[in-house]
Design a protein around this nucleic acid. Structure first.
Length: 251
DNA sequence: AAAATCGTCAACCGCATCGGC
DNA sequence: AGCCGATGCGGTTGACGATTT
């Protein structure tokens, strides 16, 4: 039998759905053989798991989910299916694609490897704290109450989102539709992480960290927007420590 | 307006693992 | 113990729409 490849048609989807509704998941080679689909068992399984399961969420990976992905990846590496188990409705494929298209892109733009210490440092000291901050901001804006970020522990040197004890790690937000992807390189210039940590500011329409290189500080970064204002927060070790304390107090 | 480039994501492939025989 | 088919996993590819030149 010639096997069909490529994108699934609506007709194939409905055939697969009808078969699984009657016979249940599993025995994918039988599905392929008996449903009338000219697909391999593998292809049927993949289509069902990544696309047709009723609980599947699609698109708009929320800030909370981004935070989880970053942290779980730092703990487990490319164990996509394991990471996906902690993100209900998300597939390993979707998480893997998120990592490749968003996170690896950042590393590439920073001209370093995604597994390098430099990138991990930047992620820990900038990206994750900023995610936490934005989650907190979105919670407060919708509820007027401080957000509750459970399961987040702190460590001495840096902001560290610790998912233990899993699977309780969750960031409770009443509204997780906010899903714009944070861009590490919006504010990162490939000098050094320490420069970055020392001189970042909140600014821009989206609260994007902004950095500007100045002639006077050619080996560092000055406060963006022409100077520091009371609304701008220096994103340095002190603030990271402050955020740690805040989060710790909320536990 | 057309071509080139980029970003996203569904789907495929190869390998590993598991369980039945 | 070894074989074999089924399933799971992670890496990679390619189509396609969006954006830039």
């Amino acid at each position: 039998m010639d096997v069909k490849k490529g994108p699934w048609t609506e007709e194939e989807d409905s055939m697969l759905k009808a078969y699984v509704n009657i016979h249940g998941e599993g025995r994918w080679n039988s599905v392929a053989r008996l449903s009338g689909l000219r697909r391999t068992g593998k292809s049927c399984r993949l289509r069902w798991l990544n696309y047709m399961r009723p609980e599947i969420k699609r698109g708009n990976i929320s800030l909370e989910e981004q935070l989880l992905i970053l942290e779980l990846h730092s703990r487990w590496g490319n164990r996509w299916s394991k990471i996906a188990q902690h993100l209900p409705g998300r597939t390993d494929n979707e998480i893997k694609n998120y990592w490749r298209t968003r996170v690896q892109k950042q590393a590439k733009q920073m001209k370093c490897d995604v597994n390098s210490k430099r990138f991990k440092d930047a992620m820990r000291s900038v990206w994750i704290p900023r995610l936490i901050e934005r989650i907190r901001a979105s919670c407060q804006s919708t509820t007027g109450q401080p957000s509750t970020i459970t399961g987040i522990m702190t460590e001495s040197e840096s902001v560290q989102v610790d998912p233990s004890p899993l699977p309780e790690l969750s960031v409770t937000s009443p509204d997780s539709h906010v899903s714009s992807v944070l861009d590490l390189t919006d504010c990162y210039k490939p000098q050094s992480v320490s420069n970055y940590e020392a001189a970042g500011t909140w600014g821009g329409d989206d609260g994007v960290l902004e950095f500007q290189e100045t002639e006077e500080h050619s080996n560092g970064w000055s406060v963006g927007g022409g100077g520091e204002s009371s609304m701008e927060t220096m994103w340095n070790e002190e603030n990271i420590w402050f955020l740690q304390q805040q989060l710790h107090d909320e536990d």
